[in-house]
Design a binder for these strands. Structure first.
Length: 264
DNA sequence: ATGCCAATGTTCCATTGA
């Protein structure tokens, strides 16, 4: 048995208490973090060391973005892709060294949000988001071993992945162009969306709620965080959950963690 | 009705997030 989690933590230094609680309560073997918001030399290694996560790979950046994968099982850094080609720290891949999950590749990714306007001409960030996905698609085309890709995709692909499908068709994160582009990425490798394998639509499994009071009061969430597996790996997933209660903890991240358990 | 919140560092204001 191997359990893997992903969480956009929105500053790992500020949320040491919350991440410690999550590790204690859910006990994943591996946790992939996004938006750690610090350079590698400022990563709070002591917090994870004390919790038993003695294996860590950090791809940090000063101030913004940044990803890290921490683990109770041995692993090694496998890859770092810059799919935006601008130096931002938005990906790190690891290979598990076993015995649990021996040889498994876990890709931890933070896809760009894409700005406000869903138009490449009017908003360069939207174009960068689409380009990031196109480069991921070419990468996925060439994959030749079982892989798990997790993280903050910043896209809610299904109508049931948002609180109001029709209202969000023109809102970045749920536009048809983003969904089509993400679908091409999915098709490039046959990725299985574990969130919807285990919690089929229209069952609720949102992962993000805005910090703004109005939107929280209305319970307007979106499913922006994902765990996708190669087909042969997906066949070994046994359980999957969204820890929605973490959104109500003190000083929470605006995202909640996801956990998948595998027979490995 | 998407910055009215939250975080960082450029720090008493600007930038970013989705």
């Amino acid at each position: 048995m191997l359990s893997v989690a992903t969480w956009n933590i929105n500053s790992v230094r500020l949320r040491a208490e919350q991440v410690t609680r999550f590790l204690s309560e859910q006990a994943p073997d591996v946790l992939c973090l996004q938006e750690i918001k610090c350079a590698e030399h400022l990563f709070p290694h002591d917090v994870f060391e004390a919790a038993g996560y003695t294996h860590r790979v950090v791809h940090g950046q000063k101030g913004y973005h940044g990803v890290a994968t921490v683990s109770r099982v041995p692993l090694r850094e496998f890859s770092r892709h810059d799919w935006q080609d601008n130096g931002e720290a938005r990906h790190v891949g690891v290979e598990l060294l076993g015995p649990a999950g021996q040889g498994l590749i876990i890709e931890n990714v933070y896809i760009p949000a894409g700005g406000d306007i869903p138009d490449r001409e009017a908003n360069a960030k939207f174009g960068q988001k689409l380009d990031f996905l196109e480069r991921m698609t070419r990468w996925a085309d060439a994959l030749d071993r079982p892989t798990l890709i997790v993280g903050d995709f910043n896209i809610a692909p299904l109508p049931e992945d948002v609180y109001d499908h029709k209202a969000l068709l023109k809102v970045v994160s749920h536009t048809p162009l983003e969904v089509e582009t993400l679908t091409r990425f999915a098709d490039a490798h046959g990725w299985v969306d574990l969130g919807r394998k285990h919690i089929p639509a229209p069952e609720r499994n949102w992962s993000w709620w805005s910090y703004r009071t109005y939107w929280q009061e209305k319970d307007r969430g979106r499913r922006l965080d994902h765990m996708w597996a190669s087909p042969e790996l997906a066949a070994q997933s046994r359980a999957h959950r969204f820890v929605e209660e973490a959104r109500r903890w003190e000083q929470p991240s605006d995202h909640v963690p996801l956990v998948t358990e595998f027979d490995l």
